[in-house]
Design a protein around this nucleic acid. Structure first.
Lengths: 201, 201
DNA sequence: TCACATCTGTAGTGAACACTACATATCTGG
DNA sequence: CCAGATATGTAGTGTTCACTACAGATGTGA
């Protein structure tokens, strides 16, 4: 009972290429031909490794969130709620206009609305975005407990707000907004969080 | 030289149906079969009237923006920049969770990323969103001139910010956020505009 | 070296897609 | 009533899609 012929490609490198195709064209706009070409493999290898197109997307999403995990840790590691928001939104202004990647965010570009065979793709992306929202919310709950945020503040609403701005910035980036434009949006957005912060007297 | 056989369907009613399909499934996810069924016509009628699928989308977008025009006028008709933002974002919280329509905003759901034959669809949507941004910017420029906004404020950045929040709320609505959740986001978001408003002493 | 298991490349599969040819129907102007 | 013009319904067109059958290649364990 041997182990069979070993795989000739690196799954993670291939996923990076697939990620880029989904990012640029969306789930439905990306074709298997484009994906296999970018990945440098043939369709049977893709299906043997990832099951089907949706399985490939999920694997690419896993890799995407994993690559961004350490950055997100840095964000929630900031000392105050205000600084959390600033790191998050300023970092997003940078990342979403990084020429090394397609503009925008894969968790949005991947597919907000899909056709009748792929209804769960938007849900899949939403679930990943919700993870980030949960991290922010937990951090803001702590900030409120520490007296960093006002007693009247709503940590869940704040987290949802920061995520909404992030998503909006992503859409703008994908339609051509440059880094400076996004920075300005982030700058304004942070002021709402500041307004919820306790006076530092 | 007669005028030929008259059209048997109402183009505007048909457009309303097409709008809903694009809204729910996106440009690429919507099929001609779904569109014609929703519109109650056959493919030849669709192509005779709108040219092709992309022409139908543009016509639907025209109708969408036309239907929302009067509301946008109400928004920028508010007395202060702060109230403009509040009307805009609270109105969006309502509209994007109106059960009479698919959740979210057609100008986002229509297609943020598309495949290789439809690259200009995202640009088309972005151009329509930019119209709203321009209206807001002009209104905020006036607010600054009137002393309603601080001399240090940036009307263009504020307009871009309000639009970013709107878009982010749309994405959240499409992935299940309810009206109250969106209202909370709007409520927080307005505070950033308030922070840019001149002190009313 | 042989049986077995897994991967890879070639070359397709049926299905769904956007779009249309064509015959027929219904109008206007004369 | 007739000629020209446009709309409609039926029934397709070629293309592209996600996905796969199959044969050969390359590994492991006995």
């Amino acid at each position: 009972m041997g182990m069979g012929r070993p795989r000739e490609f690196d799954a993670e490198i291939a996923l990076d290429q697939a990620m880029e195709v989904f990012w640029r064209h969306g789930y439905e706009g990306a074709t298997i031909a484009q994906l296999t070409e970018a990945m440098g493999i043939n369709p049977p290898s893709l299906y043997a490794c990832f099951g089907n197109k949706e399985g490939l997307l999920k694997a690419a999403l896993d890799r995407y969130t994993k690559l961004r995990g350490s950055w997100m840790d840095e964000v929630i590691g900031a000392a105050t709620a205000r600084e959390v928001a600033e790191r998050m939104l300023m970092g997003i202004a940078e990342k979403q206009t990084d020429p090394a990647n397609p503009p925008g965010c894969l968790l949005v570009q991947g597919g907000i609305a899909c056709g009748s065979g792929s209804e769960n793709v938007p849900f899949e992306l939403a679930a990943r975005r919700a993870e980030n929202e949960d991290q922010l919310r937990d951090r803001f709950i702590r900030a409120k407990a520490e007296g960093d945020l006002k007693p009247s503040s709503d940590p869940a609403a704040l987290a949802r707000y920061v995520l909404a701005v992030s998503v909006g910035m992503g859409v703008m980036a994908s339609s051509g907004a440059d880094r400076e434009a996004l920075r300005q949006v982030a700058d304004v957005a942070v002021q709402a969080v500041e307004a919820q912060s306790a006076d530092r007297t």
